[in-house]
Every structure is written in C-alpha cells, then in structure tokens.
Write a protein that binds this DNA or RNA. Sequence first.
DNA 1: ACGATGATGAAC
DNA 2: TTCATCATCGTA
Length: 173
Amino acid sequence: MRNVLLKDFFNKDAFLVAEDLLGKYLVRSHRGKERAVMITELELYDGVEDKASHASRGLTERNKPMFGEAGHFYVYLVYGMHNMLNIVCREKGYPSAILIRASNEISGPARLTKELKIDRTLNQKAAMPSSGLWFEDRGVLIDKKKIKKTKRVGVEYAGPIWSEKLYRFLIEK
DNA sequence: ACGATGATGAAC
DNA sequence: TTCATCATCGTA
C-alpha cells in the first residue's frame, strides 16, 4: 500500500517540510517504467524577503507556482539547459518552495531531473501518481541529529545575509 | 577554470 | 527590443 505525500504534508512551514522530506522517496512513472529514489539533499527558499529566491522580485510569470498551492511542482530551466525540481510549501499566496538537490543514487539537481526525465511539462502539476511524479513515505526514519545544515549552493548573488543562511539540508552519513 | 545554451526580467 | 544573468555540470 502506497503512502503518498499529498497537499497536507506540504501545506506548512518549509523548514518543517524540509526536515520531514529527507528520507522520503521521489517516485517517477514515465513511459511504463517506475523508479523511486530516496531524497538525501534539498534547499529551501522562503518568502519574498529571501534574496536568493525567485520570489524576491515579487510575482512573475515564471515564479507563479511558488505563490500557488502547496504540493504542486515548480520546475524551471537554469543555465539554458538544466531543469530544477521544486515542491511548493505553505498556503496559497506565500511563496515558498524546496529544491530537490540529490538522492541516494543521484548527486546534483540537474542530474536528478535528467535521470528521472523531469522537465517543465511537470511545472505547476500536483505531486500525485496521476501526474507521473510524486512523493512517498516508505518507512525510512531519519534521526534529526543526522541532518546537516549548510549554506545554499550557487546563490552568492543574494548577498552575504541570504547566501549564508543554513537553508541546505543533507543526511549525514 | 571555463564554456554550453536559452529563458527570464529589467532596462532602454 | 536588447542585454546581463543564471538555485549546474562536464571537460580541461
């Protein structure tokens, strides 16, 4: 029996979601095949005041999903070639999302989306089996003391205050 | 250390 | 309409 994580799981503070999401599974069903990977690294982007967040300049056509409903995907293209997968948190109107950066088998956010065939056709879709991409709790328990918190990657442009926030979470080996 | 590669947002 | 920028990765 699948334990799929739906809107209620994501409709809360991104810091709480981020801790709970480590150790959960990202499941991709595509062209008749299914693959599940355990999430081991992520970053959170929270509120319009977060200068590293796409939402810091207010609502735009691109970042619209971040202001939308929890449990929906925000997928965008960076550096002209890499798709980034985010899951939206909190209530509609508050921009907050978590970037899925790595899994047990795949290191790096661009490699993750490439391997799982995730692109912008999934943007704004709900995380659920009918979308072909969703999250599951498969019973793995992560000790909170094993969660390492570091600076986010590639956000120097946000300035010292925001680039140094410990908003990147990883499972320590 | 650097180039690939194209959508985005802000300026003009 | 133009232009700098970018939540990265593989090659050197």
